[in-house]
Nucleic acid binder design. Structure first.
Lengths: 347, 347
DNA sequence: CACAGTAATCGAACCGGTTCGATGACCAAG
DNA sequence: CTTGGTCATCGAACCGGTTCGATTACTGTG
């Protein structure tokens, strides 16, 4: 493998001149620059990443800390990851994917050894043990997901509160007065997944304000449990006319449940989900939904991170907590409820 | 951040002594070793990864080149990735996840700059443009998936031929004489996904040998197209009594299709799938299936890679092409066909 | 024609580790 | 009391880049 010394010799100049010719950080005569570039080309010169990192204190690598929980839906995770890796690459960075069970220890190892220039954290918990370590690290950090304490990092998330309100508002305006909200499984909450109750509590609050009855329940993450739960819910609240779904598995299971019960959507039941367009397409879900934009969130986190990495001024800017406002994508799965606000009892 | 120089000063020894005390590569007095370890502890010393890489020509990072195709099922991909990252970590390596569209160029960049000690390739095509680059690289490489030319790399894959034969054999032995095989979509094949026709051709050959009629068809990767296709197939071949599924999306869609048609599995139709246990669990698929063991394949690839990275002898061993033999996991979705080998025509 | 000023290039130091050969202290043997 | 041999430690070089200050050659000016 050719080094910059080889290139310099081939071009008949010193190592420093070769370096300047390649980086353009000092004026170099046209003639010499040509020779250096030709030599680099001829020798297929590629700078040694370790050496460059040592000299510049920059690795051009970002860390992405993510967990693949079996009870969270895989396709959603993939999109976050894709958003991060694609954007990182666009900006000239590679991505170190860290899935260690002990995220805090892994994070310390990664940052202390200076393998990366910045860190993106996913699967954020309300009280995330990785955050103190990230704050103490010399590299900047960003999260996808809202932790309890946002100090010292840049935070990006969907506005789940607004999403909850928008779902309730939408159905309230159509005339619905009794709704069901199915959330993620309870252990997602126990693990610290604040977005579950952020959406739920905001939805409950808004329902209270506008006189709508809202039944909320933790869901399941797998078939057939989640299908059974949907049946139970529809049995338990026969007069509910709208269903809000903050749970990918439940959304994927709903079509066969309504089919089995002979329920028509939206005539018998209005439905609004909360997932990504990509997810909707993969399962061809026929429901209106609040777009959760995982790729966009991953992308935003990386952009901000790279800004801070590359500019000393940006590094001094105050930290941001940025929410994407939920966008309701209509698939025509909502309509005014049939009078007298009851679903036909089938099954 | 503390350097080894700081540790050495704190312990009152030279840098080299500190290095030897920490690595144990030369005998060091108990007294000095204690002082050095204490100093390292006190200063929270962590070696600089770039400097170490420069000195040792080892980065302790592996590259994983993978694409997230929207027409391939995401959960399967995640399991391969998890298998790779988990095993890598167990062996002391981090994983650089590379999802560039131009995999060949990305691979050259990664290997030439010596960012990684080894490379795992996924989404292998029959004639994969990354392979010549990997062969020319100075780092060892392994693939998950069987390319046309296996020279110069270690190859790991499910034995898809054996899987195809096993599926046919199993139903033939039960007395079935007419089967349907639904494969991945045609563009997976066009992209070079050889496993599709490896399974299919072997199944056809075996069917011919034992006098079974086997109808084969490329599938779709998404709802609702794949559901429609399943209906069409069952309409077109009313006397087929068994269904073989080498297509995750089709397997996931089948339960509602059989439900809609009033078909009972296995009484009216025997079914065998080919997917991972994890996938089966996520969708609670009630079918017997050939386990595709994605985590195991990823893990095997990494183990072999690390062996070659860490041992000069291992690096000289001949390259391996290793197939996992398919394991049929029974969920009771097969049974002898009802006489006279016809399904009830419902719908 | 000496002289300042500028532009291009060079040499050396540095980043933070590892590793090789040399050195010094100590002990036992001759 | 010298000599030989261990054992532990040190100093220097090296890995392959980048960067700073110095040097050289050339240009235009007084």
């Amino acid at each position: 493998m050719a080094t910059i010394g080889d290139v310099a010799r081939e071009a008949g100049v010193s190592r420093s001149t070769a370096s300047y010719a390649l980086s353009g950080k000092r004026p170099i005569s046209e003639e010499v620059r040509r020779r250096v570039l030709a030599a680099a080309e001829a020798l297929a010169y590629t700078p040694n990443a370790g050496a460059r990192a040592l000299a510049t204190s920059r690795t051009k690598v970002l860390a992405l800390l993510a967990r693949f929980y079996t009870d969270e839906f895989a396709p959603a995770m993939m999109q976050y990851i894709q958003g991060v890796t694609d954007t990182a690459r666009d900006l000239g960075y590679d991505t170190l994917l860290v899935t260690d069970e002990d995220g805090a220890r892994a994070l310390r190892r990664i940052t202390d050894s200076r393998m990366v220039d910045g860190v993106v954290l996913m699967n954020i918990a309300q009280d995330d043990p990785r955050l103190p370590i990230l704050r103490a690290a010399s590299q900047p950090g960003a999260t996808v997901g809202l932790p309890g304490d946002c100090s010292g990092i840049d935070v990006f998330d969907l506005d789940f509160e607004e999403a909850g309100r928008a779902m309730v508002d939408h159905l309230h305006r159509l005339g619905h007065r009794e709704l069901i909200l199915i959330s993620q499984p309870e252990h997602v909450v126990e693990r610290g997944g604040a977005y579950v109750w952020r959406l739920r509590d905001a939805a409950l609050e808004r329902a209270r304000q506008c006189g709508v009855t809202l039944h909320t329940v933790y869901g399941e993450s797998r078939q057939p449990a989640v299908g059974r739960l949907l049946h139970t819910l529809l049995d338990t609240y026969p007069s509910a006319t709208g269903l809000l779904i903050n749970n990918e598995a439940a959304a994927a299971a709903l079509p066969s449940v309504t089919h089995e019960r002979g329920l028509r959507v939206p005539e018998d039941l209005s439905v609004i989900g909360r997932y990504s367009a990509e997810f909707a397409a993969a399962f061809s879900l026929p429901y209106s939904f609040v777009e959760s934009a995982p790729d966009r969130l991953g992308s935003m986190a990386v952009r901000q991170l790279v800004r801070r990495v590359e500019s000393a001024e940006a590094r001094r800017e105050p930290f941001v907590v940025r929410f994407i406002s939920p966008e309701l994508v209509s698939h025509g799965s909502t309509t005014p409820p049939r009078e007298p606000h009851t679903r036909p009892r089938v099954r």
